[in-house]
């Protein structure tokens, strides 16, 4: 299992595993070398993110705005902007019984969630290929989500049955279709709001895989870091549907 919601990873609250290792994640940012600079202005011109600003005989680099595209560095005629690593997060590996849990975390104050996710994806590809990997993805439809689902075979979209939930689900569905991903919907806090999500999924021919009932007890258990399915039978029943689907997709028997 992997928590790729790097801006606020929380799956770890429910894993009582042993910390095996911590690996830093770096991103490459340009560092200005004044002595080599001819103040041609090229770096500022090619930066799409305003991460390099030239003021007469001074070049300011804003590492947090930098997307590590290397354009300023590569196109600098005098190599005055070599790329150097900056630590932006870390990946912790835990073991609990036969579960390996990776928690991917962006450092406080850093903005480039995508680069930490991409780095974690590389580790998954290298060290865990062929294994069943369940990813806790960031919410929404922005770049971190795209990066988190990029290499997946199937996406489960969790949505609440409210007008807000439906609005965001539609965006998520459009995104997954654009990415050509297979997906299904899980209705969370079922019983809340209205049945517009159900109607929408019917119309769009989208499978609703499970309906997790709305329950105050669930919220209380969650707030204590306890696993909900163990204590609420209706939740367990729905979670089993999800587990069975995953088994079926990964070719394991039920």
């Amino acid at each position: 299992m992997v928590d790729l919601d790097v801006e606020e990873p929380n799956s770890g609250l429910f894993v009582k595993g042993k910390l095996e290792e911590t690996n830093p994640v770096y991103k490459m940012v340009p560092v200005w070398e004044k002595d080599k600079c001819t103040f041609c202005g090229n770096c500022q011109k090619v930066c799409n993110f305003n991460a390099v600003i030239q003021l007469h005989t001074q070049v300011l680099v804003f590492p947090k705005l930098c997307h590590s595209c290397y354009a300023c560095s590569e196109l600098c005629p005098t190599d005055a902007l070599p790329m150097k690593p900056e630590k932006i997060g870390e990946i912790k590996t835990f073991h609990q019984d036969n579960l390996t849990f990776l928690e991917s975390c962006l450092n406080i104050g850093q903005e480039m969630a995508v680069q930490v996710i991409a780095h974690t994806n590389k580790i998954l590809e290298k060290d865990y290929q062929g294994q069943l990997i369940i990813i806790d993805a960031p919410p929404g439809t922005s770049c971190p989500v795209i990066e988190a689902v990029k290499d997946t075979d199937f996406v489960l979209l969790a949505a609440e049955p409210t007008p807000f939930g439906l609005h965001d689900l539609k965006l998520a569905v459009d995104t997954m279709r654009k990415l050509k991903k297979d997906f299904a919907v899980i209705i969370n806090r079922f019983g809340l709001g209205n049945d517009k999500i159900w109607e929408y999924c019917q119309r769009q021919n989208i499978e609703i895989l499970a309906k997790i009932p709305n329950s105050r007890t669930a919220a209380e258990l969650y707030s204590h870091g306890k696993l909900i399915y163990k204590q609420i039978p209706q939740v367990k029943q729905e979670v089993l549907k999800i587990a069975n689907k995953i088994r079926q997709l990964s070719g394991e028997p039920k």
Partner: peptide, 15 residues
């Protein structure tokens, strides 16, 4: 139209 770095961009213009 600028998604990232509006602050430094405007500051550069002002400079």
């Amino acid at each position: 139209q600028v998604a990232h770095g509006a602050g430094p961009e405007t500051a550069r213009k002002l400079f």
